[in-house]
Amino acid sequence: MSRPIRVLHIIGGGEIGGAEIHILDLARHFSPQEVELHLCCLFPAPLLQRALKQGVQATAVTMRSKVDIVGFWKVLQLTRQIQPSIVHTHGVRANLVGRLAAKIAGVRCTVTTVHSVLENDYPDKLSRWINYWSEKLTAALTERHIVVANFLKKKLCEQGIAPDKVTVIHNGVDDGKFVDAKRKSDLRAEFGIANDAPLVGMVGRFHPVKGHKYLIEAAKEILKINSNVRFLLVGDGFNREMIETVIREEGLEPFFLLTGFREDIADIYRAIDVLALPSLSEGLSLTLMESMLCECPAVATAVGGNPEIVADEKNGLVIPPGDALALAAALLRLIENREESRRFGEAARKTIEERFTAKRMAERTQNLYRELLLGRLGVSG
């Protein structure tokens, strides 16, 4: 098999989150001699534009819903046109559409990456039920599930997926993004934040599962003790307006800055003193890994893959989910103990460099592609 493996990745792409960055990092680090990557986005923006800018062969096929027949037909036609050896899907909508299109088009192999726990991504019970059965009914069409953390393999096996059909390939960080960061003072000047003000940052989409409300509750306690602390919220999402309302009603507007989506994420990590990750659920957080690579220590909840990255009291602090007081205490500890914070930051960087790089993630993924096409379907993570 001397020619590169042609792979069609299918994803919603209606936001820039961990799954979207995951694909962009794969595209950047796949060997062109090994993999020819094509991308199909089911929303017209913003992933499509970022992929094209990066040089990825990408197409948008807009689907208004999972049962958009016209949209599905276009995805099927695109699959037939590209003639991939593997269709690789990400997310419930893409899984349903991509698996069916691959089957009808006669694609040799279908792979699905699971980035998070499905039930935690859909707070509405009806949506959760519909998406659960969408996954359940088409799971058999996937030859191999890739999961980005060990705990997700356990979850899938509990749902009836055979262990030898699940491979663990940890998410990885593209360290090339973090070479030319601005000085800390440059970004703080842009935001109007004093260089000596302790700055807590939270980076991620505005979704209830990310736990923004717990940071707001923690901020109220922190500010009683240290009124110089400031809080930076980076990202966008449907829940942003509600969070802004809560901040305003609590009288915390002078202490919070919401930046929206930012491209200069490395500069953000180097400007903040501590990362807060109060999530109620996570897969394997790219935000967490990126901040650690930048020597920014984190306070993270003990959910999902977080404990696979953060070793409590060694390279960061781990707290229970949904506990605003524990979050406040941990953040204050790192704010007030700069030497401990520095030690955690150095250990955090070493953890990422040794175990969680995008290059390693891409190499393991392209090796799995080749193993699957060679028929060694008994290989697991």
Rank of each mutant, 00 (worst) to 15 (best):
K210W: 06
K184L: 01
K182G: 03
K165G: 00
C157N: 12
F151E: 10
S85N: 13
R205H: 08
T112G: 09
A189G: 08
K177C: 08
V147L: 10
H212S: 08
I86H: 09
L156P: 08
I86P: 04
V173D: 00
I169D: 06
I86Q: 04
K210G: 00
L152M: 10
D174Y: 01
K213W: 10
G176I: 05
A140V: 08
G106W: 08
R108M: 08
G106K: 07
T110R: 06
K136I: 01
A181K: 13
E143A: 08
I86A: 06
N195L: 11
F151V: 06
T89S: 12
L156V: 12
H170L: 01
H115S: 07
S134T: 15
Y122F: 15
K210F: 04
L100K: 11
A219K: 03
V107M: 09
V179E: 06
I104W: 14
I169A: 07
L126P: 02
I86V: 14
P208V: 07
G91P: 04
K165P: 01
V147M: 07
G201M: 00
G176Q: 03
H170I: 03
E119W: 03
E217C: 10
A140P: 05
E158W: 03
E158N: 10
V148E: 07
A101S: 13
D164S: 05
L215M: 14
L137P: 00
K136T: 12
E119C: 07
G172F: 02
V179G: 01
K184W: 01
G160T: 10
C157V: 15
A162D: 13
L96G: 00
S185P: 08
D180H: 12
E158G: 13
L199M: 09
I104T: 13
P163G: 00
G211M: 11
A149Y: 05
V148R: 07
V117R: 15
V97T: 14
T110G: 06
M202Y: 04
K177F: 04
A140E: 05
V209W: 00
R205P: 01
G91I: 07
L126V: 15
E143Y: 05
H145S: 09
L141D: 09
V200T: 02
N95L: 13
D164T: 05
H212V: 08
V148I: 15
F191M: 15
G211H: 04
P84I: 14
P198W: 12
E143K: 13
Y214F: 15
K155P: 00
L118A: 10
D164A: 03
T89C: 13
K155G: 01
V173Y: 00
N131Q: 14
G160D: 10
H145L: 09
E119A: 05
K165C: 06
F206H: 05
R144H: 04
H88Y: 11
R183A: 12
L152R: 01
K213L: 15
R183V: 03
F191Q: 02
Q83N: 14
D121R: 14
H115V: 06
K220N: 12
K220V: 09
V114H: 02
T142P: 01
N120G: 14
R144S: 08
E135Q: 11
G106M: 06
I169G: 02
A218W: 10
Q83T: 14
T142Q: 00
L187C: 00
V111P: 02
V107S: 02
Q83A: 15
R99M: 02
P198G: 11
I104H: 12
A197R: 09
G176V: 04
H145K: 11
N131I: 05
K213V: 15
L118C: 03
S134M: 13
A181R: 14
